[in-house]
Every structure is written in structure tokens, then in C-alpha cells.
């Protein structure tokens, strides 16, 4: 019979070749090992992470001897006592947690309509525009963006110049808590949109039409149908934004004017300024614990959202 070339795509031929190679290089009786082989890089990474955590855990129980600048030989819980008693750490921890929560809520509120429009618009041009605007910031790192805000929001920046035109004295827009939160929201927005997009596009448009035909105006369609169905996406996006904000370093460092430290900045200071690896490790572990607790709490209350991996998906 005559062969029809189109019936056998090139990709199949390539896969045939690969299969033949695998069969040759990896005899079938070793087949059971293949899943483990594929898992190996991940296991290695996690393993290294665990080793690192164990070391950090070890150092967290040692104190700095300022006469030799080495960690003590004996174990002590002094660092933990310091972490829980010194007002500095309570202040910084509260600021980070509160900031992360505010940033998460504001980001989700802003990301939702953006994502909804991007997913639902019948206008291909608009969708492309929204997507481009979404991805562009990814090519500009966090630090560069923060410096951008320094230029725009500074005393002699664009915003203050514009205010000056209408006779307003320069305002201190930078180097305060709102500036840090603003920078974080702007940084997190694309992450949130990306996490929300699959969840929103998974909501059949027909459901919204159904709600409308059943007597719901758009507000009630949104609150009674879209929002509950978008919950997995909101939870997923919320978790990502929450953890990234909670552990952020650059925004508080650059936009905070030195007095708006988050936990990561305090950890940095211990490692790199006072050379106190012990206290630094303690703070790092406490941050991991606080973050995990927070994530656990969110999952317990709202489910894991799109981050939940289950075999059966409905």
C-alpha cells in the first residue's frame, strides 16, 4: 500500500527514535527505576534544602562571641529569647505580617478585574495589550522597579513636579510604610493575575449568562457566582502574594528609607552587618515557621485553591 507521508508526523518519528534509544540505553527490566530517576533532581534539591535548614537550625542555638567573632560551641536558646523579647523583632514581625496581609488584599482586589477583563474580553487586541502589560514588568527586576519609583515619587520626581504645577508643595511620597506597600502591590500584581487567570477562565461564561437569565444583575452575578467560583484562584494567588510579600527584602530596603524593615531585612542585618549568624538563623527559622503557619491557616480556612493537587479534578 502506498504510504501517505502526512499521516505520520515528524514528531512521532522523533519520539520513535527516542523510544528506541531509551529501550537500548535503559533495558526494560530497569523500568521500575525510571520514576525515581525522574524524581532524582527534585529529591536532590529538597535534600540540599533540608541539609541547609538543619545547619541553620544548628547555628540558631549558638551565640556570637564578639571577642573572636565565632559561634559558641555550646547550645543555648538565647537567640530565641532575644527574638521573642526584644521589641525590635516584634515591631518588624508585626510590620511584615500586617504589610503582607494588606498587600495581599489590595493586590487581589486590583488583580481580579484586570484578570477578568483579560480572560473575558472578546477583543483580541485588548487581550494582547493586557497580556503584554502583564509580562513586561517581569523583564524588569524588582530592584530596578523600586529605583524607578524613587525617580517617579521623589521630592523632585514626576509626581511632585506635577503637583508643583498646581501649586502643591513637594510631598514626601517615599521612605514610609505606604510607599513600601505600594511598591509591593505593584510588584505582586502580575503574579496574582497569572495565578487568577486559569481559575477565572475555568468558570464557564454560560454560568454568568445563566445567573443573568435567572434575575441577577452584574453585581449579584459577580458576588453570587463569579466570586465563589473564583475562590480557588483567589486562594492560590493570595498564598503566593502573601508568602512573597512576607519574605520580601528589596522593597522595604529601597522604598522604606531604612526605617521600614521587614523580617528579611532584619535577617540580612544579622548575617551581614553584625555577623551574628546565630540570631540571623533564629530569625530565618521563625520566619519559615510563621509563614508556614499562616499558609496552613489559610489552607485550613479556605482550602489550597489552585495550589491543591488532586487526582480528581472537577
Amino acid at each position: 500500500m502506498r504510504q501517505t507521508p502526512a499521516a505520520y508526523p515528524l514528531t512521532w518519528r522523533i519520539m520513535d527514535g527516542l523510544e528506541a534509544f531509551v529501550a537500548f540505553a535503559w533495558p526494560a527490566r530497569l523500568g521500575a527505576a525510571i520514576p525515581w530517576l525522574m524524581l532524582a533532581p527534585a529529591l536532590l534539591l529538597v535534600g540540599l534544602l533540608v541539609i541547609g535548614l538543619v545547619q541553620i537550625g544548628d547555628v540558631s542555638f549558638r551565640t556570637l562571641d564578639p571577642s573572636t567573632y565565632r559561634m559558641s560551641e555550646n547550645y543555648t536558646i538565647a537567640n530565641y529569647q532575644r527574638a521573642f523579647t526584644e521589641s525590635l523583632f516584634a515591631t518588624v514581625a508585626t510590620r511584615s505580617l500586617l504589610g503582607a496581609l494588606i498587600v495581599t488584599v489590595v493586590t487581589l482586589v486590583l488583580a481580579f478585574p484586570y484578570t477578568y477583563l483579560m480572560v473575558r474580553t472578546p477583543n483580541a487586541m485588548l487581550r494582547k495589550l493586557l497580556l503584554t502589560a502583564l509580562f513586561l514588568p517581569f523583564f524588569i527586576g524588582q530592584v530596578v522597579r523600586a529605583y524607578g519609583w524613587l525617580i517617579i515619587l521623589g521630592n523632585q520626581g514626576m509626581v511632585n513636579e506635577a503637583l508643583g504645577l498646581v501649586g502643591v508643595e513637594p510631598l514626601r511620597l517615599l521612605y514610609n510604610y505606604p510607599a513600601v506597600l505600594f511598591g509591593l502591590v505593584q510588584y505582586m500584581l502580575p503574579f496574582a493575575v497569572l495565578m487568577l487567570a486559569p481559575a477565572l477562565s475555568a468558570i464557564p461564561e454560560e454560568l454568568e449568562a445563566a445567573a443573568e437569565s435567572l434575575g441577577a444583575n452584574w453585581v449579584r452575578t459577580f458576588t453570587h457566582v463569579v466570586l465563589p467560583l473564583a475562590r480557588p484562584g483567589l486562594v492560590g494567588a493570595g498564598l503566593v502574594v502573601l508568602t512573597l510579600s512576607l519574605t520580601d527584602f528589596a522593597m522595604p530596603a529601597i522604598l522604606g528609607g531604612g526605617s521600614q524593615d521587614f523580617i528579611a531585612n532584619a535577617i540580612y542585618d544579622q548575617f551581614f552587618r553584625t555577623s551574628d549568624q546565630g540570631l540571623g538563623s533564629t530569625l530565618a527559622l521563625l520566619l519559615v515557621a510563621a509563614g508556614s503557619l499562616l499558609v496552613g491557616l489559610v489552607i485550613a480556612l479556605f482550602g489550597a485553591g489552585t495550589l491543591a493537587l488532586s487526582r480528581v479534578r472537577r
Binding site: P204, E206, L207, A209, A210, A211, E212, S213, L214, G215, A216, N217, V225, L229, R314
Partner: peptide, 18 residues
Amino acid sequence: PPHKRSIGMVFQRLALFP
């Protein structure tokens, strides 16, 4: 608008709220 017309509709894929 649809929500002000007194019309009940059964959709092709039913569009029940999951």
C-alpha cells in the same frame, strides 16, 4: 437586560452552579 426579562432558560450544558 436579561435579568429584567421574565424568562427562564435551560442552557445547553445546563449551567448549574457547581
